[in-house]
Design a protein around this nucleic acid. Sequence first.
DNA 1: ACCTGAACACCGTTCAAGT
DNA 2: ACCTGAACACCGTTCAAGT
Lengths: 187, 187
Amino acid sequence: MSTSPGNSPYHHGNLRQALLEAALVILEQQGEAGLGLRDLARAVGVSPAAPYRHFDSRAALLEALAVTGFQRFAARMEAVAASQPDDPMAAMGKTYVVFALQNANLFRLMFSPQLKKDSRPGLRMAADAAFDTLRHLVGGDVKKGRIKALAAWAKVHGLAVLLLDGQIAIRAGEDTEALIEEIISSL
Amino acid sequence: MSTSPGNSPYHHGNLRQALLEAALVILEQQGEAGLGLRDLARAVGVSPAAPYRHFDSRAALLEALAVTGFQRFAARMEAVAASQPDDPMAAMGKTYVVFALQNANLFRLMFSPQLKKDSRPGLRMAADAAFDTLRHLVGGDVKKGRIKALAAWAKVHGLAVLLLDGQIAIRAGEDTEALIEEIISSL
DNA sequence: ACCTGAACACCGTTCAAGT
DNA sequence: ACCTGAACACCGTTCAAGT
């Protein structure tokens, strides 16, 4: 198509970025188990060994994807907080759950047991940063606020996870978003 | 040790059971990723192909482990319910979270995205059965009860998951169980 | 500096053969 | 009926070699 320097699609310059983008697509379509390094390399049109110039291992690639996920998540949460909704907790909670449902496999990867945050400071930092907006929201009242904040966070996170797992049954003709709002605003 | 028929440890009769028991140990020690079929076979003293007489695939083995997990979980929940505690919701919630922390990798496996319950009716049934006690608890009031029940479930489940992920920071010298109780009983 | 080609160790799985 | 031994396809990863 084009051979002008600086915008030849792959093989030059931005393979790392190309890998990440292709990986995100494969991840959402096939899930983490379907994201092989060789398949990814093939999808990008590069040799099986090429990704190793940009990622130390498959785990490092997954970590980079999870970090991206936390960044996108953080951007959404900040946007909602900045929009000054009537009920900030409810609005952010809904955004939280909707993000999980819209980016199912990415969200799962962000909390995958395979990516132990204890041994991956980069992931931990990204996760902490992503939850900062949430923490600041209820963190105002420092006294009893912590317990309430943690309880609200747990409720929202648990709702997201149980919905992803298909564990909370949606009844025929039921509006999922309405159910989410009801559960979040309950108590 | 003994060659009397009916109780020779392996190679006869109960290889399936032996595999499951060894797998549970490896799972809790090494995590799901560290649970290879070949390693498992070696641990039990059997050839790499032997497990296939009892499990169709590695996924089927993991599913069987997860089912066991749900059964153990259900047993705990039923025991608490049967003990008629002052505050059933609080007692069961605490049991829920403590089970998750005490059986970390098994609990993670029970909700692993790798074991999609949509395509595994056995797993779905085991999971549904495990949550039955919980459902019956708040299912008494059918009107607005569902939303409240789901909210309580989500809070407890989210707390378990976030604690497992190390996302909820335990402060120095803080009592984890006390924190769990506080969060569960908050509103 | 970045990528290729070929190799290595390893894994899940299959299958003919043993007992 | 249950297990072994050997093989197959495949994967993550490494490394010398190319450009």
